[in-house]
Design a protein around this nucleic acid. Structure first.
Lengths: 330, 330
DNA sequence: CTGAAAGCGCTTACAG
DNA sequence: CTGAAAGCGCTTACAG
């Protein structure tokens, strides 16, 4: 590929001027020279080398995103929203997919540090992720899930505990006497918050409600595999609330396999509220996370110069659809 | 962050030796020196700057991937498989999400060229994408969809036409007299192949089969919006075969909304065959693309030195599940 | 307004 | 086995 030097030579000027033209500064260039440079660049198909630029400029114009599983539409939507927010600022979004594998997650962290991303948005698999590599490299991070309150890393997240409580309360208020929680595995991110919110709602009901927690990875297959024996048991719950929409999809599938009707035989509530959740059969009652707002705010935090780590909450919303059997009006 | 120079100074040696140590070559380093370098690097939290490395090495160890919509689980799975294949070779996968927007797609192409990815895997939104920027930069590309046979770019893809024919034939063989094709929009990638395969199967049946094509974007919402009036019409088809699983999900949702039972009142067939397709309600009959094989072969082609562009076909497979109403055994 | 030169942090012939 | 130096392709003070 041709370089700035080639362009300068063809245009009869210096590489400095080529740079000024392509960056609209920091020095002025006469209109005639500018035109010659542009013509030469076009003729040579010149594309500035972003690596060289980043090396001397000290900024890569890149924000890294690490997610547990990009095939989960929630993270797909999140990536899309972040890309919109990043592109608006002229930055590129680099996506690292952990594939539900903590070793892979660690590898992405290392790769991002080596590539000197300017900042990172992180959804970890773990409830206590290791951010030290980013901190040593002074790369600002915002996590999109709850963090210890003394964490040196910022976070933007809904209040998982309150959201899980809202979902469960919806069920208790509609008279369910036996409710299951399909939670993520122990030490998975948010699992503690889901459990606490769930239990808080059960208690708050003031009634004797049978309740039980089971756990699966956040995948349809895993959730379905856990749900089938659960729903086959004689004392199966009348409602199951899940830690993710993916798991709720697995429950829906398990119910179908067993010939249970949703919501008549089993109520199901999801969590995340992607666009997809409106198109399941039946459409899913779920807790919606404000993905676009979270994405936009994350980028704001990362690009502003905020000294101390901030821990912000975004508003969640219970979206009532068919899968829980409670019509929106009551 | 500390640099190789800092490490060299602390270890009492030169930057060349630091480089030899971190790259295991190309020159030998005495065990004692090596140990001093490693100790110094650890003490300083040294992380080689991948940008500087790439600039002098002439290789970024990066493969770019451009997909229409990362929230579509098919592309999510694809990204995962490609990342596995790339990481195995020590490369990083850079994902660009076009978000169903051709301007965004063009922007990613430019960004990848500027960042000097070593190679790219591309799923375009268009049936005749513009690869010229990659060609000018001598960046090898493999497309994962049909291309004009004289294309200078390689492709690895299933035979869309044969696959669409297989899906439709399954329907004609099971006696359907009225079949719809929910295809992508005109000029969307693969739309022509889907149509040809569909029509070929109708013809091959030797019967008078009513058939009709309608079109939507590859999203559940769009497919559902198109399907609802279609299924409300008095002459609605008895079966619909779709260009993607996402669209099939939209059809499933539309049927649910209208109180039509699948498969009793309407048979549905998808296309792509992600893991998710096994967990819809009812589980989806679909054409499975061998994602992992396609991903692995793409990386092979890109990293081998193949002079001429190759156009390879991968084997598809019709996966019969509940949504078409034909039991696997007949 | 423009050019020659140093510097970003690496790698790698070139000497020793 | 090791070091001094050039070079990758940019940007940006520094002179003029």
């Amino acid at each position: 590929m041709s370089t700035g030097r080639d362009v300068a030579a063809l245009a009869g000027t210096s590489t400095a001027v080529v740079s000024y033209v392509f960056n609209n500064g920091p020095r002025n260039v006469s209109p005639e020279t500018k035109e010659r440079v542009l013509a030469a660049a076009a003729q040579l198909n010149y594309r500035p080398n972003a690596l060289a630029r980043a090396l001397s400029f000290g900024r890569t114009a890149t924000v890294g995103l690490i997610v547990p599983d990009i095939a989960n539409p929630y993270f797909g939507e999140l990536a899309g929203a972040l890309e919109d927010a990043a592109i608006e600022r002229g930055d590129l979004l680099l996506i690292g997919d952990s594939r539900l594998n903590t070793a892979r997650e660690a590898r992405h962290i290392a790769a991002f540090v080596e590539r000197r991303v300017d900042s990172v948005v992180m959804v970890s698999l773990l409830d206590e992720p290791d951010f030290s590599a980013f901190q040593q490299a002074s790369i600002p991070v915002v996590a999109l899930h709850p963090l210890a309150s003394d964490s040196q890393v910022s976070s933007v997240t809904i209040d998982y505990e309150a959201a899980a409580e809202a979902a469960t309360s919806h069920l208790t208020e509609h008279g369910f006497e036996s409710i299951g929680l399909l939670n993520g595995p122990a030490h998975s991110v948010g699992a503690d918050q889901h459990r606490r919110g769930f239990l808080r709602a059960i208690e708050a009901s003031g009634r004797e409600i049978r309740h039980e927690e089971r756990n699966s990875d956040s995948s349809r297959a895993a959730a379905s595999a856990v749900s089938i024996p659960w729903l086959e048991s004689s004392d199966r719950p009348g409602a199951i609330t899940c830690a993710t929409d993916e798991q709720a999809n697995g429950v829906l599938h398990a119910a179908y396999r067993l010939g249970l009707r949703v919501p008549q035989d089993l109520a199901v509530i999801g969590f995340d509220g992607t666009e997809h959740s409106g198109f399941t059969v039946p459409p899913l009652t779920t807790v919606r996370q404000p993905i676009r707002a979270i994405a936009a705010r994350s980028i704001e935090i990362l690009t502003g110069d905020i000294a101390a780590p901030v821990h912000e909450f975004a508003a969640h919303e219970l979206v009532v659809r068919d899968s829980c059997g409670c019509t929106p009006s009551d």
